[in-house]
Design a binder for these strands. Structure first.
Lengths: 209, 209
DNA sequence: AAAATGTTTAACAATTTTGTTAACGCAAAG
DNA sequence: CTTTGCGTTAACAAAATTGTTAAACATTTT
């Protein structure tokens, strides 16, 4: 029973994730989600009470998982170069799985600006990570491996280079005439492109972990 | 009469643009648009037949205007550095006016993938611009001002660095604690950050047009 | 196996949203 | 002055969508 419950509940969640984040069908109705999952529409209300609550749950779980991975990376003792390298991997992987997550996120945040805050880590943790990162960036700047830049711009650069190509998939595809295979290849190339763009000269001594 | 017609039609279009692109209210209903514009809802159908056609018109006009500007820049005889510099200005300016345009674009494209093609320039023009750009990039690579990179990644880098900060406004704002003023300041700073990130060392001789 | 508990379904109700239409008002043309 | 045509409005109709409920079904517990 608890098994079947979990089965159906997960099925609905996974289907919603697929529709929202993979297919970009942000306005998917409860009926569409139910059809796609092959369950009765009322079950969505049975398990999640309302469409909005389903949204919220799916969103929080997905972001929570990502955040954990990122916190783990930036809390580690690794070099900045390696941290960034790992960050890129995670973001590009996630974006290959859920190309429309970012886009969806923004749309949702505009609807409910209050909920933005819940999605971010607690102040102390953020501050701690910020200090570590700040220090490492200053080191890199001092040794000339990156140009002088604020931590804000550095992070926004990083996120931009990783995320935008996924968000803008239809445009990039059409603009350069990529089919699905070509586009995936392009995405995988970005791993190195982003690293190269963030660090003026790849530092091989640091690259060896 | 033709005047009043144009007045109301433009008023509706401008209001729709404001709601869609400025406020990010992508799912604005015809009623909301009408209320915001202070006109009767039926007028939207009178002038545009359906909500979808209003969408389409507003979208095409906005993109058309942007595309013209970009084509103009890249068709010019300017140096690559200056072209990029002007490109950044236009994109950041447009994004300050219409922060949610990109986001909206993606959402719409996902709904109607067929319409993506209409939004892009004709093949010949695209090819011509591509050849010019390719040549200039190769020159810059040869003279060491930018690292070896394909035209596709170069352009995607550029668009990412300009557009993402706008798309992700709510996240960036919250993450770094920017209010509206602080965020706008951050955006204006990006002009130089993007240039610096795209070109390993700013080339001052070229910078003087 | 009867009761209890939890899951699923179909039918219904309520709401929201879009699209249509007939009538009204007004300005220009005849 | 009245007729014509366009812009506007309110009221109506239709469709889509969400949420609720009572009954059917399945399972576990006693």
């Amino acid at each position: 029973m608890a098994e079947k419950t979990q089965q159906t509940e997960d099925l609905i969640k996974e289907t919603a994730m697929r529709l929202f984040f993979q297919k970009g069908h942000i306005n998917a109705t409860t009926q569409e989600i139910a059809d796609e999952a092959g369950v009765n529409r009322a079950l969505i209300h049975y398990y999640f009470r309302s469409r909005d609550l389903l949204f919220e749950k799916v969103l929080h779980e997905t972001l929570g998982a990502t955040r954990e991975k990122i916190d783990y990376i930036f809390s580690s003792q690794d070099t900045l170069y390696n941290k960034i390298s790992r960050f890129i991997d995670i973001f590009i992987d996630q974006n290959i799985d859920y190309p429309y997550l970012e886009n969806f996120l923004v749309t949702e945040m505009v609807k409910n600006p209050d909920k933005v805050k819940e999605l971010h880590p607690v102040e102390e943790k953020r501050e701690k990570l910020r200090r570590i990162l700040e220090e490492q960036i200053q080191e890199e700047i001092a040794s000339g491996r990156i140009e002088p830049i604020s931590i804000e711009h550095f992070m926004v650069n990083l996120m931009s280079l990783c995320n935008y190509p996924l968000i803008a998939k239809p445009m990039v595809q059409n603009f350069f005439g990529y089919d699905e295979v070509g586009y995936k290849k392009f995405l995988l190339e970005r791993r190195n492109v982003v690293l190269q763009t963030m660090f003026k000269q790849p530092n091989f001594s640091e690259n060896i972990k």
